[in-house]
Amino acid sequence: MDNWQDITDDRLVRPIHPGEVIADILNDLDINTGHFADILGVSNQTINEIINGQSSITVDIAIRLGKALGNGTRLWLNLQQKVNLWDALQSHKE
């Protein structure tokens, strides 16, 4: 298998923003954004901005998500990093 950057370089569409994954999880768990924001200890606005792809997953949010959902910090940081790398590569292609 090629290395991770080669896979990202050849990708034609932007990777899924971690906010979309969070939205799917909340939908599956039937939890609204306000309740989830309370669980994480952040504002509802913060969660909505992440879900809408307007904000990135920070290290702090990744830690909170990993603890709340039991899936660890790295998952969220890796998802965000793929988006960030793809966006940067696209801006350099122009």
Rank of each mutant, 00 (worst) to 15 (best):
I39A: 12
L89P: 00
D28A: 15
E49D: 15
N84V: 11
I22V: 15
M1Y: 06
Q80V: 07
D87S: 03
T58Y: 00
N27T: 07
I50E: 00
D6E: 13
K82M: 12
S91H: 13
T46Y: 10
N84E: 15
W4C: 02
A23R: 14
G34K: 13
W76I: 10
D6R: 08
S91P: 01
L75R: 06
N44S: 12
I63A: 02
H92A: 09
A37I: 08
D60R: 14
I22L: 15
L26F: 12
L77K: 08
E20H: 11
T8F: 09
D24T: 08
D9F: 09
Q45T: 09
I7H: 04
D30C: 04
L75K: 10
N32W: 08
V59L: 03
R11Y: 01
L79Q: 07
L79E: 02
L85Q: 03
G72R: 05
L65R: 01
V83C: 01
T73M: 08
D60V: 14
R74T: 07
I63T: 05
G19N: 11
L40E: 06
S43K: 10
N52S: 15
N78A: 12
T46Q: 13
R11E: 05
A88I: 06
W86C: 05
H17A: 02
V13C: 05
T8C: 14
N48W: 03
R11T: 05
L26E: 08
I63S: 02
E20Y: 08
L65F: 06
F36D: 00
A62P: 02
L77I: 15
